[in-house]
Simulated scan of single mutants.
Amino acid sequence: MTSITEDLRFVGIDDEGYAQAVATAKSFTYGDDESGFAFTGKATLMFQREAQEWEHGAFSSTVLITFIDPIQGAPDAQEPQDEDFLRAVSDRVSFLHIPSQCQQMQVDDVWGIDCEFLMFAMPHPQDENATAWLLIPGPDHRVVSSRHTVQDYQLAELKRAAAELGLDGSQEPTLQ
């Protein structure tokens, strides 16, 4: 079993098949038949394990898309991608496959994983006649970019709030 099929149990794509799918998506040109079309790009996936079991329901995840490879020949292909556009696409991702690295996570860990991705539309499994976007992190260029615990985040938030209120010793406290 390859690293990608560990991630994609129901999609069942191996490393070579993934590379072919990415190449096909990148060669798509604007106006071609849209069936089977997929986006490629780069993203950071934020994961938190919420239970010990290795299953999709034991994780919470957030997608932060950082770049989308433009479609060749599209009218806006040369325009710079702004944050609102990337955030809007990130928000459309309904289903996400969990990288195999996450098996090592502990409960309360929060990881950021940088990856290339392949994302395509599929019929929504729960909502009839609706579309879901499935994001698949690729086997190449995949790296755990940050590891924190929930407590790390909470402590950082407390320190930030203390600084804003002047309770960190940097200035006299001010009452609002």
Score class of each variant (00 low, 15 high):
Gln101Leu: 14
Gln101Tyr: 14
Gln101Gly: 00
Gln101Ile: 14
Cys102Val: 14
Cys102Pro: 00
Gln103Arg: 15
Gln103Met: 15
Gln103Pro: 00
Gln103Gly: 05
Gln103Ser: 11
Gln104Cys: 03
Gln104Leu: 12
Gln104Arg: 14
Gln104Phe: 10
Met105Gly: 02
Met105Val: 04
Gln106His: 10
Gln106Trp: 08
Gln106Asn: 11
Val107Cys: 03
Val107His: 02
Val107Tyr: 04
Asp108Cys: 01
Asp108Met: 08
Asp108Asn: 13
Asp108Phe: 12
Asp109His: 09
Asp109Cys: 04
Asp109Leu: 07
Asp109Ala: 04
Val110Lys: 02
Val110Arg: 06
Val110Gly: 00
Trp111Ser: 03
Trp111His: 06
Trp111Thr: 07
Trp111Lys: 07
Trp111Ile: 11
Trp111Ala: 03
Gly112Lys: 06
Gly112Gln: 12
Ile113Ser: 04
Ile113Gly: 03
Ile113Arg: 05
Ile113Lys: 07
Ile113Asp: 01
Ile113Ala: 05
Asp114Lys: 15
Asp114Glu: 15
Cys115Lys: 10
Cys115Leu: 04
Glu116Pro: 00
Glu116Tyr: 11
Glu116Asp: 15
Phe117Val: 05
Phe117His: 07
Phe117Glu: 05
Phe117Ser: 02
Leu118Thr: 11
Leu118Met: 10
Leu118Asn: 08
Met119Gly: 01
Met119Asp: 02
Ala121Gln: 15
Ala121Leu: 05
Ala121His: 05
Met122Gly: 03
Pro123His: 11
His124Arg: 08
His124Ala: 02
His124Gly: 01
His124Phe: 06
His124Pro: 01
His124Asn: 12
His124Ile: 05
Pro125Met: 04
Pro125Asp: 01
Pro125His: 06
Gln126Pro: 00
Gln126Ser: 06
Gln126Met: 12
Asp127Pro: 00
Glu128Gly: 00
Glu128Leu: 13
Glu128Arg: 09
Glu128Met: 12
Asn129Lys: 12
Asn129Glu: 13
Asn129Cys: 03
Ala130Thr: 02
Ala130Tyr: 09
Ala130Pro: 00
Thr131Ile: 15
Thr131His: 03
Thr131Leu: 09
Ala132Glu: 09
Trp133Leu: 13
Leu134Phe: 12
Leu135Cys: 05
Leu135His: 06
Leu135Lys: 07
Ile136Gly: 00
Ile136Asp: 02
Ile136Gln: 08
Ile136Glu: 08
Pro137Ile: 14
Pro137Thr: 13
